[in-house]
């Protein structure tokens, strides 16, 4: 999809700079917090950027506004990407990123709403975000609110049966304010998503459940932005965006490498990655 000609209001150079900086930020957090999941974090950076930079109607000045768009990170293990996006867009001071994964801090290594109340949900166990999103969407509909509900899920998460229970409900209730964005990096913790989950691709699965579906390149920022602007894809249907992504995207030695699901980067890894990205992290350097 080529939406670049209709999006003069979007500064893609700025987005691309932020994309590199968010990756650098996440890599430093993973090193300092001695936590992994970089593979799953880096694959969804561009999706989060497009959401926070161009689409979500939510403001740092009033992050709990009743008519805001709701964003739910259902793949809670990718939380550093969300923290980086929230810092990029003024929802938290960048200095808070220094506290990532510290005991008692606001930024644990899976999203926790008690630690960071501006989050819509806590996550860490897969397969809950979509169901909660549908409940929120139905409640907003009853209240006559205009906000939309976006859920970012992993493809491995779609192994969970609860995802399909919720997909069924969203279609039955015609919740077209719901959009499920699937970070389809085709890598799970120890296997490939397409091998584990059988022959039918995710887009066909969602379509079979009554959803309107688009499959896109999850690293093509103009394409992502244009796709989001087309929501809902069909009135009366929930929308799914199957975003084809690369695990560890943006750092050559991490791309599509299974070990970067768990591995925490060494100081040398950080140095190499930051040199490749050519930009400093958003938060202060660590010794």
């Amino acid at each position: 999809m080529d939406g670049t000609h209709t999006m003069d209001d979007v500064d893609f150079d700025d987005l691309r700079l932020r994309a590199r900086r968010m990756r650098a930020t996440c890599i430093r957090m993973a090193h300092d917090g001695r936590e992994g999941h970089l593979k799953s974090t880096l694959s969804c950076i561009d999706l989060l950027l497009a959401l926070y930079g161009t689409w979500l109607r939510v403001s740092p000045d009033d992050p709990r506004h009743p008519d805001r768009d709701r964003f739910l990170l259902s793949k809670g293990h990718g939380v550093t990407a969300l923290y980086a996006a929230l810092a990029e867009y003024g929802f938290m001071p960048p200095s808070l990123l220094d506290t990532y994964a510290q005991p008692g801090g606001a930024l644990p290594n899976h999203a926790c709403r008690h630690a960071l109340p501006l989050l819509e949900i806590s996550s860490g166990s897969l397969g809950h975000g979509l169901g909660m999103a549908t409940g929120m969407a139905y409640g907003m509909e009853l209240d006559g609110r205009g906000g939309r509900v976006a859920v970012l899920m992993s493809d491995g998460e779609c192994n969970e049966g609860s995802v399909w229970e919720s997909a069924m409900f969203a279609a039955a209730r015609r919740l077209d304010r719901v959009v499920a964005i699937i970070d389809n990096n085709n890598m799970q913790a120890v296997g490939r998503n397409d091998e584990i989950s059988g022959g039918m691709p995710l887009d066909d699965k969602f379509r079979a459940f009554g959803w309107a579906v688009r499959t896109i390149d999850g690293h093509d920022l103009p394409g992502i932005v244009a796709t989001l602007r087309g929501l809902p894809f069909e009135p009366g249907k929930p929308s799914a965006i199957v975003a084809r992504t690369v695990g560890g995207s943006g750092v050559s030695f991490m791309e599509d490498q299974m070990m970067w699901h768990y591995r925490s980067p060494s100081a040398e890894d950080v140095e190499r990655a930051l040199a490749e990205l050519g930009v400093a992290p958003l938060h202060r350097a660590t010794p």
Partner: peptide, 26 residues
């Protein structure tokens, strides 16, 4: 009628959906 939801034989969804509603003040 709008406050009655039969979500089907789907207990996992039943509870997740209720949690979402509760987050919206229901």
């Amino acid at each position: 009628p709008r406050r009655y939801l039969n979500v089907g034989v789907a207990e996992a969804h039943l509870v997740d959906c209720a949690a979402g509603l509760a987050l919206e003040g229901w």
